[in-house]
């Protein structure tokens, strides 16, 4: 498995990022630098572009203008390798309904070219309160359970860059506690970016990027 070394230093640099959908300008000339151990929160009104910014950082959509660079120990990571460096949770991101939790995680590890021992899937699911539901199809999960599995897939490969769009969405207090532990573990070794307007999610941040300003 390509576990990223916890002693590696990661750096994310956004330079003059702008995004426009047709005539609508979401944000312009947005710059940001975040390094390992930091948590940044992206806040702003509905429609200000929080989720879009996270999607741009993840490489799911392209910015209209600007550059994004990822560095590992000072060396730039190329676009083809980024998929193993990024973990993402977002309301619009879904897993496969007809596969079980274990099958979903196994599939995502295989397409990333990772060899993960089966115990890792079970321990991760247990950590997120999904013990006993490992072999149930994702399609029958409640919205809170789905959110827990989304968190599990995002941290499965210990990504140096974790993008969390409303991470507590649909979670009960036990779920929030589990995600809280994951965010604290992540902070020790890597970069976390949270998009939210919920104060308890913003409270994790070392710095805040307000897209409404």
């Amino acid at each position: 498995m390509t576990q990223k070394n916890s002693e590696n230093r990661y750096h994310l640099k956004l330079a003059n990022i702008s995004k426009r959908f047709g005539r609508t300008l979401l944000f312009k000339k947005l710059s940001l630098e975040v390094s390992s151990g930091e948590i940044a929160a992206v806040v702003g009104w509905n429609g200000s572009g929080k989720s879009t910014l996270l999607r741009i950082i993840a490489g799911l959509i392209r910015p209209t203008r600007g550059e994004i660079e990822y560095h590992e120990n000072g060396n730039q990571i190329n676009a083809d390798e980024r998929r193993n460096y990024i973990g993402m949770v977002a309301p619009a991101l879904a897993l496969y309904d007809e596969l079980s939790a274990i099958e979903n995680l196994e599939f995502l590890a295989q397409v990333r070219g990772l060899k993960i021992i089966r115990e890792r899937y079970y321990s991760l699911l247990e950590q997120l309160g999904l013990k006993g539901w490992e072999n149930a199809n994702y399609g029958i999960y409640s919205s809170g359970m789905k959110q827990r599995l989304k968190i599990a897939q995002a941290v499965l490969h210990n990504p140096p860059l974790l993008l969390l769009d409303e991470p507590f969405n649909n979670l009960d207090t036990k779920g929030i506690d589990a995600v809280d532990k994951i965010i604290h573990e992540q902070k020790k070794r890597a970069i976390t970016i949270i998009a939210s307007n919920e104060q308890r999610e913003i409270d994790y941040a070392d710095r805040i990027i307000n897209l409404s300003e």
């Binding site: 993840a58 490489g59 998929r83 990024i86 619009a92 897993l95």
Partner: peptide, 16 residues
């Protein structure tokens, strides 16, 4: 339609 396209994009290379 199932909104799984993003997870596939995040995990796998286009050629694969």
């Amino acid at each position: 339609e199932a909104h799984t396209i993003d997870i596939l994009k995040l995990s796998a290379r286009p050629q694969s």
